[in-house]
Amino acid sequence: MSSNDLARGHSSATLSEASGLFVALSPQIRSLWAGARLCGPAFTVQGAGGDNLALHHAVPQAPPGSVLVADVGGARFGHWGEILTVAAQQRGIAGLLIDGGVRDAAETAALGFPVFSRNNAILGTRKDFRGVLGRPVKVGGVTVNPGDLVVGDVDGVVALPASDTERILDRAVARVTHENELMKRLREGRSTLDLYNDFETAGRCHR
Rank of each mutant, 00 (worst) to 15 (best):
M1W: 11
S2H: 05
S2V: 10
T14G: 00
T14Y: 07
L15V: 06
S16E: 15
E17D: 14
G20Y: 09
G20K: 08
G20N: 08
L21S: 07
L21T: 01
L25R: 04
S26F: 10
S26G: 05
S26Y: 08
W33N: 11
G35Y: 14
A36T: 09
R37M: 07
R37A: 15
C39W: 01
C39P: 01
P41V: 13
P41I: 10
T44H: 10
V45K: 04
Q46E: 12
D51G: 09
D51L: 06
L53M: 13
L53A: 12
A54E: 05
A54C: 02
H56C: 00
H57L: 04
P60R: 10
Q61T: 09
A62D: 02
P64I: 08
P64L: 07
P64G: 03
G65Q: 06
S66D: 04
V69W: 02
V69Y: 00
V72R: 05
V72I: 12
G74H: 13
A75S: 15
R76T: 13
G78W: 11
G78A: 11
L84R: 04
T85G: 14
V86M: 08
V86L: 15
Q90V: 06
Q90S: 12
R91H: 07
G95R: 04
G95L: 12
L97H: 01
I98A: 03
I98R: 02
G100Q: 00
R103I: 07
A105H: 07
A106F: 03
A106Y: 03
A109K: 08
A109S: 07
A110S: 08
F113V: 10
P114I: 15
V115C: 06
V115H: 05
F116K: 03
R118C: 03
A121D: 01
I122R: 11
G124D: 12
T125A: 08
F129Y: 14
L133R: 05
G141W: 08
G141N: 07
G141I: 06
V142L: 10
V144L: 09
D148G: 06
D148Q: 05
V151K: 04
G152L: 04
D155V: 09
D155Y: 14
G156P: 02
G156D: 07
V157H: 13
A159T: 08
L160Q: 03
L160V: 02
P161R: 00
E166F: 10
R167N: 10
R167K: 11
I168N: 01
R171S: 06
V173D: 10
V173T: 01
A174D: 10
R175G: 03
T177M: 12
T177L: 13
E179I: 14
E179M: 15
L182P: 01
K184G: 06
K184Q: 15
G189V: 08
T192Q: 10
D194N: 07
G203V: 12
H206K: 12
R207C: 12
